[in-house]
Amino acid sequence: MMEGSRAELSSRVRETGPPIMQVMKSLKAPRDTIDLSQGVPFFGPPEDAVKDAMKDIRSLHGYGPDAGDEELREIILKKVRSRNMIRAGSLDNIMVTAGANMGFLNAVSAISDPGDEIILLDPFYFNHGMTLDILGVGHIHSRPAKDGEVDIDSVDEAINSRTRAIVMVSPGNPTGAVMKKGSMEALLELCLENGLWLISDETYEDFHYEGQHVSPASMGDELPVISLFSLSKSYGIPGWRQGYMVFPRWMFDQLLKVQDTTIICPSRVGQRLALYLIRDHPDHARNHMGALRENRKEVMDWLKRNEDLVEAPRPDGAFYAFPSFTGGAFERIRSMDIARNILEEARVLLVPGSPFGVNTPPALRISYGNAGKDRLREALERMDEWLEGSPLS
């Protein structure tokens, strides 16, 4: 029998941390644990759209165009022009992706080389950090600012000769904060002055509790903006992996190379469902905002009654809150240890703040979109009891 040494793995992959959702789901949860960890809404897609997509499935076995089926891209083009006010001129501004995460991978692969750097605004979406680590692209972090604002001086200080882009997520994951238009304009100015890209993750565009969504790409013509969109949250279909990206059309051929070497083309049946959803049910998420508003109020009330121990950015969008433990003796405890303790003693599963780049003070992400109001209230009451009994309070 042949013997040999074990072949090596990429150091970039080995040194990248594990997916935090897999870590949290692997923990031994007590019976009757309430799961507020996963960023998914409580609702699913309209049944008629699913039935229509299933009727078409027998004709969708073959490869499709790398950039996505033309009929779907036409629908997306109309949508981003009318709802996002993005001045996209043709189908060459649009590419269908397997969710917004793939759009981010496509974008970073097309605009950067190993050793380059991209600026993430803290707290950042953890999959963005993982993607950069695996691609060998450095990430520099700006200082957090208050509700919807950006510390522009901090971003400016982070720019150097290796910087290729600034990434923004609004409404935010993990905070639910909505970036103010003035901050978007300031980021765009920095990009234009320094020859950088602005990557705008707009996964939660349909989840606003105050005001309307603003896409930074709508602020001019052919701006250096790559906009990422997802159907996972707006239609409750994360398992279908459907999203799209919008970009200056001169990028199209280069992005096509990246797409062809990953999935070749997005799922054909998934695209058919996406077509029916965007075309026939444009307000699906908005129709569920009443229930989400009630859930948000429960979380806001919880933050208020525990304000001596926690503080959080105002969650004006998405369905997250991101409380930092600023009172008591919590500052010396890791967020992962706090999350484990709450799981074991309060039977509530949350996500620690460390994968989002936040270590001190420790923070936790609460996802209030995936539970009914009564179940959410019970989870928050359990957390009240845990805080009252904790020696750290």
Results as ranks from 00 to 15, higher is better:
residue 5 S to N: 10
residue 6 R to G: 02
residue 6 R to W: 01
residue 6 R to H: 05
residue 8 E to R: 14
residue 9 L to D: 08
residue 10 S to R: 01
residue 11 S to T: 13
residue 13 V to E: 08
residue 14 R to W: 00
residue 18 P to C: 04
residue 21 M to S: 11
residue 23 V to W: 12
residue 26 S to G: 13
residue 28 K to Q: 09
residue 28 K to A: 12
residue 29 A to H: 08
residue 29 A to Y: 02
residue 32 D to L: 10
residue 32 D to T: 09
residue 37 S to P: 00
residue 43 F to L: 04
residue 43 F to M: 06
residue 44 G to V: 12
residue 47 E to A: 14
residue 47 E to C: 03
residue 49 A to M: 11
residue 53 A to W: 04
residue 56 D to H: 12
residue 58 R to Q: 05
residue 61 H to V: 12
residue 63 Y to F: 04
residue 67 A to T: 13
residue 68 G to I: 10
residue 76 I to E: 00
residue 77 L to I: 03
residue 87 R to L: 10
residue 88 A to N: 01
residue 90 S to W: 02
residue 92 D to G: 01
residue 94 I to P: 02
residue 95 M to K: 05
residue 96 V to I: 15
residue 97 T to K: 11
residue 99 G to D: 04
residue 109 S to I: 07
residue 113 D to I: 01
residue 113 D to R: 15
residue 122 D to R: 15
residue 129 G to T: 03
residue 129 G to P: 01
residue 132 L to V: 06
residue 133 D to E: 10
residue 135 L to Q: 14
residue 144 P to E: 03
residue 148 G to Q: 03
residue 154 S to N: 02
residue 156 D to Y: 13
residue 165 A to T: 00
residue 171 P to T: 07
residue 180 K to P: 00
residue 182 G to I: 05
residue 182 G to N: 13
residue 187 L to A: 15
residue 190 L to N: 10
residue 194 N to T: 12
residue 197 W to K: 11
residue 197 W to A: 03
residue 198 L to N: 08
residue 199 I to K: 06
residue 200 S to Y: 13
residue 202 E to T: 01
residue 203 T to D: 06
residue 206 D to I: 00
residue 208 H to S: 04
residue 212 Q to M: 11
residue 214 V to P: 00
residue 221 D to Q: 08
residue 222 E to L: 07
residue 223 L to W: 01
residue 224 P to I: 05
residue 226 I to A: 01
residue 231 L to Q: 12
residue 237 I to K: 08
residue 239 G to M: 06
residue 240 W to Y: 07
residue 240 W to A: 15
residue 248 P to V: 13
residue 249 R to K: 15
residue 253 D to M: 07
residue 254 Q to L: 10
residue 256 L to S: 09
residue 264 I to R: 13
residue 265 C to S: 15
residue 266 P to K: 08
residue 267 S to A: 11
residue 268 R to H: 11
residue 269 V to E: 08
residue 271 Q to T: 10
residue 272 R to H: 09
residue 274 A to L: 09
residue 280 D to W: 02
residue 281 H to L: 10
residue 286 R to N: 12
residue 287 N to R: 15
residue 295 N to E: 06
residue 298 E to F: 09
residue 299 V to I: 05
residue 301 D to V: 11
residue 304 K to E: 13
residue 305 R to T: 04
residue 306 N to E: 01
residue 306 N to A: 03
residue 310 V to C: 09
residue 312 A to E: 09
residue 313 P to Q: 14
residue 314 R to A: 08
residue 315 P to T: 13
residue 316 D to M: 14
residue 316 D to R: 13
residue 321 A to Y: 12
residue 322 F to I: 05
residue 322 F to H: 05
residue 326 T to F: 10
residue 326 T to S: 08
residue 328 G to M: 02
residue 329 A to W: 03
residue 330 F to T: 02
residue 331 E to R: 15
residue 333 I to Y: 07
residue 334 R to D: 12
residue 336 M to W: 09
residue 337 D to Q: 14
residue 338 I to D: 09
residue 339 A to D: 02
residue 340 R to F: 07
residue 342 I to A: 03
residue 346 A to M: 07
residue 351 V to C: 10
residue 353 G to C: 10
residue 354 S to N: 15
residue 355 P to G: 04
residue 358 V to R: 10
residue 359 N to T: 15
residue 360 T to S: 13
residue 361 P to I: 04
residue 364 L to K: 11
residue 365 R to T: 14
residue 367 S to N: 15
residue 368 Y to C: 09
residue 369 G to L: 08
residue 372 G to M: 04
residue 372 G to K: 12
residue 376 L to G: 05
residue 377 R to I: 01
residue 379 A to W: 07
residue 386 W to A: 05
